[in-house]
């Protein structure tokens, strides 16, 4: 089926497709000399955030991505792409290093959400995400975020405060997974299909809402059908975005990002009669 005719539910399925290019695939295809950096320098290492330094067309960049893993063992280690606070604190560390060494940051978002576990809560999942948002909001280097698969909740947004936010055609981005949404709103997780229809989670919806800036087309049938085609399109888009952002001053980059998120949802506010 042509991509433009897909229903939101079908796109959710494609975004979660087991063969969809993941963090490792995208990093291998787009960058050279990737040096993964591990650990949050406080207490642990979370493989659900894959990050480090790499060369992008010969220039150093910091890469930060959600990682789901490619086999069951990795899936389990990565909690199926759901980061723990250690992962978000590693991301903070990499952002601060990128700032120090004046490297642009490229993030790749693909997570059902932050890991809802006992230890994750004990170690401050909320604080870890909040700090990620605060730090990334004030960076003076270019930040380009790409939603490549599932963009679920605050766990996704933690890597999403970019000067530019791109989204793959079949990726989805939402306040919560459709299952979680249906469970909370209708107390019935099985109504997730219905949730997909009302949540406005497709790339086209989010472009219209001003949440994303650009849609990256995918090969017919989804990114996994012809990954190399996707990598070429994505590479070209990232080159274009970075070239434009590199022309801006550090202050303009921070101010531009602030302004971008400052107006999010301003059309969602009205004045009530008093």
């Amino acid at each position: 089926m042509a991509n433009e005719n897909l229903t939101p539910t079908q796109r959710v399925a494609l975004a979660r497709h087991p063969e969809r290019p993941g963090a490792e695939d995208i990093i291998n295809a787009l960058f050279t000399e990737f040096f993964p950096q591990r650990g949050d320098r406080r207490c642990g290492e979370d493989p659900a955030i894959l990050g480090g330094v790499a060369l992008f067309h010969g220039k150093p960049v910091t890469v930060i991505a959600h990682r789901k893993g490619r086999n069951l063992e990795e899936h389990l280690a990565c909690h199926f792409g759901m980061p723990s606070p250690e992962g978000y604190r590693k991301a903070q560390r990499l952002m601060e290093q990128a700032e120090k060494f004046r490297r642009p940051i490229l993030t790749f978002i693909d997570t059902p959400g932050a890991y809802p576990g006992l230890e994750a809560e004990a170690r401050g999942q909320g604080e870890a995400i909040a700090r990620c948002l605060a730090i990334s909001s004030a960076l003076t280097v270019p930040v380009v975020a790409v939603v490549t698969g599932e963009g679920g909740s605050g766990g996704a947004l933690a890597l999403g405060v970019g000067n530019r936010v791109l989204m793959l055609d079949n990726a989805v981005y939402s306040v919560l997974s459709p299952e979680g949404f249906a469970a909370i709103l209708w107390k019935d997780a099985s109504r997730s299909g219905e949730a997909c229809d009302v949540m406005k989670l497709t790339a086209a919806d989010l472009l219209a809402l001003g949440v994303v800036d650009e849609i990256i087309p995918e090969p017919e049938g989804g990114a996994h059908k012809e990954p190399n085609t996707l990598y070429q399109t994505l590479d070209a888009a990232l080159v274009r975005e970075l070239t434009a952002l590199n022309k801006l001053s550090p202050a303009a980059l921070a101010a531009g990002r602030y302004k971008k998120f400052r107006v999010m949802g301003s059309s969602a506010v009205r004045k009530e009669r008093l």
Binding site: I129, A130, L133, S137, S153, G154, L157, G160, V161, Y173, S174, V175, M199, K200, L201, L206, L209, V211, F261, M264, G265, A268
Partner: peptide
């Protein structure tokens, strides 16, 4: 939906 999420940022 997503506009709620963006308020966090």
């Amino acid at each position: 939906g997503i506009l709620s999420l963006m308020q966090m940022a």
